[in-house]
Simulated scan of single mutants.
Amino acid sequence: MTAPGPGTVRPGGRTARIRDAVRRATLAELAESGHQGLTVEGVAARSGVHRTTVYRRWGSADGLIADALDLASGEPWPLPDTGTLAGDLQTITRLVLSGFTDPGQGPLTRAFVLAAAQSPGTAAALRAFLTRRHEQATVIVKRAIERGEVPAGTDGTEVVRIAVAPLYYRLFVSGEPLDEPTADRAAAAACAAARAGAL
């Protein structure tokens, strides 16, 4: 993937508009067709950006997905501040649940994960995206440490990772039902582990 060079992206400029149009088209194509059906040609046609331009700047379907994830990783996550770690983790696991089960957003969210299983490039982009999300979420554990809810030195990234992992497992590995009680149990388990000093 060839990214625009330094200084070529101006807020509101032509490059930014092209990148936004291509990103929107990539997300729409991915949601409709999945990783296997995502093509540079399809994105070019949907976005109205010439195919040659898309090939030159993104190179491939994997480059398109990686760029979409890169843009998304810079967007803030609506993190909760309920006053307790238990409440914050429950809110986060419910956010993840809704991201997977929402009729509009769910197909796209699932498509990203499934694409990562088929493409090393997409897997690396998804890993970077999730790393950024986990880093953003560590603030809830920092607040919990300050309140004395969990021991100093508790790994905030690991707490969040353990809270959301059961949801991914059920959806992509075991095929078991994914619902709100499952999300709440996952949050409670991660909170208990953090309070016990296991993380």
Rank of each mutant, 00 (worst) to 15 (best):
G156Q: 01
G148N: 11
L108N: 06
P181D: 06
R170A: 11
G156F: 11
R132P: 00
L108A: 09
P78R: 04
T84K: 07
W77I: 01
P181F: 05
A188L: 14
D184V: 10
D184R: 11
A165M: 15
G104N: 08
P151D: 10
I92W: 01
R161W: 15
R127S: 15
D102P: 00
A163H: 06
R132M: 08
G87Y: 07
S174I: 07
H134W: 07
L114F: 05
I145C: 07
E146Q: 13
P107D: 06
F172N: 03
T91W: 15
R161E: 15
R185M: 11
Y168E: 12
Y169N: 02
P120M: 12
T93H: 05
P107F: 02
E180M: 01
P80G: 07
G106S: 08
R127N: 15
T122R: 07
W77A: 02
T101H: 00
A111H: 00
A123P: 00
R94D: 12
E176C: 08
R143P: 00
P107Y: 04
Y169R: 11
L178A: 07
A144L: 10
G104Y: 04
A137I: 02
R127H: 14
L108R: 12
F172T: 06
V164H: 00
A165N: 14
V159N: 02
I140K: 01
T84Y: 08
F172P: 02
L85V: 13
A183M: 07
R143T: 11
G121R: 15
F100M: 12
L167G: 03
L89S: 04
E176M: 11
I92L: 15
A152V: 14
A137S: 13
G87F: 09
L167I: 08
L85Y: 04
T84C: 12
P80D: 05
T91Y: 14
R110F: 03
E135P: 01
I140R: 01
I162Q: 15
R143M: 03
A187D: 03
G175E: 10
T157V: 15
A125I: 09
E158C: 08
L89D: 03
T154R: 05
G175W: 09
T138P: 00
G153A: 12
T82K: 09
T154C: 02
Q118L: 13
A123I: 02
G153Y: 13
T182I: 15
E146W: 09
L108G: 06
D81V: 09
Q105S: 14
T101C: 03
L178G: 01
T122L: 03
S119D: 15
P151A: 10
T154Q: 05
T122S: 13
V164M: 10
R147L: 12
G148F: 10
D88H: 08
D179I: 00
L130A: 06
R127V: 07
P166Q: 06
L126M: 09
Y169G: 03
F100K: 00
D88E: 12
G99Q: 06
A190L: 06
A117R: 15
A86T: 15
P181K: 07
T122C: 14
G153W: 14
G121I: 10
T131N: 13
L114H: 11
F129M: 01
T138C: 11
R132F: 08
E176N: 11
R133S: 02
F100R: 02
E135S: 14
A115F: 03
A116T: 02
V141P: 02
Q136I: 10
